[in-house]
Design a protein around this nucleic acid. Structure first.
Lengths: 100, 100
DNA sequence: GCGTTAATTAACGATTTTGTTAAGTTATTG
DNA sequence: CAATAACTTAACAAAATCGTTAATTAACGC
């Protein structure tokens, strides 16, 4: 599962929001949702496969945290196609300015 | 279908890439892919529902183009959770600086 | 109006996703 | 080392997604 697909599910996006306040173990994450632990476990695996979160074992616990790089990759893709022509011209202008 | 889900499919992302070079009608878009026209038509409907593209009728043709605002909404969500603490502190510092 | 062109909607099958409960794994603790 | 705690993996049902072909709608152009 790629990063975009990982972020397509609303529950997984809520997990991202939750982790933005700091790392949390699987049980704590699950306690915030009305679905079963195995379901959350799978969502976490998907987020991990998509490069959106990372996991660190701590005794029996598995501590999850956001993976900034993964989120940035998705953001970079978007930015590339989001920017308007005027913005692209600005970038071009800056580049030309630097060449002089 | 929301914006994130619309962007989860690889074909739909390729359509976004294609439209980044300028608006195109449905037939032209379909000619770039190995799948049927109805399949492309559905992908376009999904992208439209997700606010990623917009459509303008031109006689029998339907001309599609990127909707920058929709892409920016997704990007904004990502940016909110992507930024690292040091970046957030930079923003805070700037804000404090302005208050002085 | 009639045939043609451009595209969407309908009907349907194959595959994937998302959830559930039950069973298995790994580490801690008395 | 037996019992417990924290998760994940397995097996499976329900729902959604994605593709195909056939039928339908809408707009030209003679």
């Amino acid at each position: 599962m790629d990063g975009f697909t990982a972020l397509a599910d609303p529950t997984r996006r809520q997990i991202v929001e939750l982790l933005s306040t700091g790392e949390k173990d699987a049980g704590t994450i699950a306690s915030h949702f009305p679905i079963s632990k195995p379901a959350i476990s799978r969502h976490l695996a998907n987020l991990r496969e998509g490069g959106i979160v990372q996991m660190r074992p701590d005794a029996q616990r598995r501590v999850y945290s956001l993976r900034t790089e993964g989120l940035r990759d998705v953001e970079t893709w978007l930015h590339r196609y989001r920017s308007t022509w005027s913005e692209k011209l600005d970038v071009l202008e800056t580049a030309l300015e630097e060449m002089k």
